Amino acid sequence: MKKVGIIGGSGFIGSYITKTFLENGFEVKVSTTDITREDKYQHLMLLKHSDNLQISEMNVEDKASLLDFVSSCDIIIHGGTPFILDFQDAETELFNPTINGTENFLEIISLTPEIEKVVFIASVAGWNTNFPFPADGKSFTDSFDENDSRFSSTNSHPYAQAKFIANQVVEKFIKENTNLSFEITTVSPVGVMGKSLSNREDSTSNGLQFLIKNKIAPDAFIQMLFDDNISFSLVDVEDVAKAIYKAATTKGLHGKDYLLATETYKISDMNLMLNQQEPKEIGQIIYKNDLAKKELGMQFRPIKETLFNY
């Protein structure tokens, strides 16, 4: 039985990744930053084949615990960077755990020869830190794919900046280490939507859907999204998990970075669909998914189906 280690495997996306690997006959090791907080991972114990699940305390900024976690794993999925929009200190809450954690992780896996595959769960922010706004020089209706130039701005949200820098760290590592014994593949989802597998109330992705569904604006940024009826490129959380599983179990994808996306809708139409009403406009494919379809064999579900089922 192959073993996969999933850093962040109890989060919104991570829980679906854990579920997918368990259903496909893997032994699964999931990290948690605090083993005493059973509320963060107890929902995983209800999954099928949870007898093949192990919960392990780990901090990506602690190299010793990181080494202990990745040891004996055939595949490592790294999705343990914080997704925080409302923060107090960007350096300690976003930049340090995202960038330093990535650097530590790369150092540790280079010392772990038994690993066969590493998949990074990055973000569309690794391609465009302005998301959901267009990259510099593009409009809301201009398409974007993996052939476009990456765009970053220091005016973007610190979360997006941290993810962009972390992605650059990974790309630099790949270029400088040409004789790795394992493959590294990255996936970069746009706005991830869907039901949460847990009852946690601290999920940013789930919380954002709740705010849009109920037209609640707790801060100026969210209010601006409503006022300007901003468009979002979206993707289903289960599709993200499937793409990660395929990236992890398919050989020959070293150095690839796949955008995971379906349609783009304005926030007013997202509100309608989250309330099981038909959107007023037809969704457009702005962030393209052709590469993921071709090389990962993905078939993405319409985001309308995802939002109707929220």
Rank of each mutant, 00 (worst) to 15 (best):
D219S: 10
L106T: 01
I282M: 13
I174N: 08
V60E: 00
D202Q: 04
V60P: 00
L46E: 15
D39G: 13
I75D: 12
L106R: 02
V119E: 09
T185S: 11
M298P: 10
Y245A: 03
L53N: 04
V28R: 02
N100W: 00
F12H: 06
P132G: 04
K40W: 02
I303V: 15
I76M: 10
S72F: 09
S156C: 00
I244A: 00
F21H: 03
S181F: 07
H43W: 07
I77L: 12
F210V: 00
M270S: 01
K138A: 04
K293C: 15
I76A: 07
S203V: 00
V190K: 06
D257M: 12
G9P: 08
G101S: 00
I35N: 04
L67A: 15
E116A: 09
P218I: 02
T306Y: 04
P302M: 09
K40L: 09
F26K: 06
D236Y: 15
A248M: 13
D89E: 15
S72G: 03
S72N: 15
L85H: 14
Q161S: 08
L197A: 07
S10L: 05
Y310H: 07
K288Y: 01
N271V: 02
N229Y: 01
A261F: 08
I282V: 14
K195A: 08
I17C: 12
N199S: 14
E278A: 14
A64Y: 09
F151H: 15
D290Y: 14
S123Y: 09
V118K: 10
E146Q: 12
D89L: 08
T306K: 02
E176L: 11
I121Q: 10
T249F: 01
G79N: 11
K246D: 12
K63E: 15
G207H: 07
F120T: 05
E61G: 00
Q88G: 15
S152K: 15
D148E: 13
T249H: 04
Q277H: 11
A90W: 07
N206E: 10
D269L: 05
S203Y: 01
L208C: 05
E281I: 09
N59R: 08
V4R: 08
I76L: 13
Q42L: 10
G101Q: 02
A292N: 12
